[in-house]
């Protein structure tokens, strides 16, 4: 698992990097101090990355409570593994991978997964937490209704810009499977959105 986390070669795509007003040296300093068990420095890392991590968890789970739990789990795991972070990838990418693992682990452990999926499929993401507008709101809700596998791939590939190889690595599936899941996601989304006049 550590090797998997360390192998991540790419960083966030440019659209996702928004370290406005923050020098990268600050983050490097926080990382260094957090590796020496400085909780305040780790809190700074948390404040910097939490929105992106929570966003990923929420889009992958489609459920606010689970997204919160997975986000907390991801940061706790990151704290416990800080000494293993060597900077081969950006810290944001590293914790993204941990978050994906937290989501997958939680879903595997869930004994009521079928019920949860059914609940998620009926759930509309909270307007207070998602700031997508108009057609994007419809798309966001449609993504949330996708089956789990298709949703995970679509979120990683379509929303967060990871390649099929990267998404497959994160999800523990082959790149070809990721492509197949994306194809499925597109087909299901098109069916949903066509009914809502998304193309017009």
């Amino acid at each position: 698992m550590e090797a998997l986390l360390a192998k991540q070669a790419s960083d966030y795509s440019p659209q996702m990097v928004s370290l406005d007003g923050l020098g990268m040296t600050d983050e490097a300093d926080w990382i260094s101090r957090a590796q020496r068990a400085d909780a305040k420095a780790f809190e700074s890392l948390y404040r910097l990355h939490v929105d992106r991590v929570y966003g990923l968890c929420l889009r992958m789970t489609g459920n606010v409570a689970e997204a919160e739990d997975c986000t907390q789990e991801a940061f706790i795991q990151a704290w416990n593994k800080m000494d293993k972070f060597r900077g081969d990838s950006a810290f944001g990418t590293w914790i993204h991978r941990i978050a994906v693992n937290a989501v997958l682990g939680r879903m595997r452990k869930s004994k009521r997964e079928r019920d949860r999926i059914q609940l998620a499929s009926d759930e509309v993401l909270s307007p207070a937490s998602i700031n997508d507008d108009g057609d994007l709101r419809d798309l966001s809700d449609a993504v949330n209704r996708l089956p789990e596998g298709a949703r995970h791939v679509f979120v990683l590939y379509g929303v967060y810009g990871y390649s099929h190889e990267e998404a497959g690595n994160m999800l523990g599936i082959a790149a070809g499977t990721s492509k197949a899941q994306l194809h499925r996601a597109r087909r299901l989304l098109a069916q949903q959105l066509e009914q809502q006049g998304f193309e017009k």
């Binding site: 659209q15 996702m16 928004s18 939490v50 929105d51 992106r52 929570y54 966003g55 990923l56 929420l58 889009r59 997204a67 919160e68 986000t71 937490s129 998602i130 700031n131 997508d132 994007l136 798309l139 966001s140 993504v143 679509f154 379509g158 929303v159 967060y160 810009g161």
Partner: peptide
């Protein structure tokens, strides 16, 4: 999809 928010405030 690439325009969907990647950062969501808890």
């Amino acid at each position: 999809a690439s325009k969907l928010s990647t950062e969501i405030v808890p």
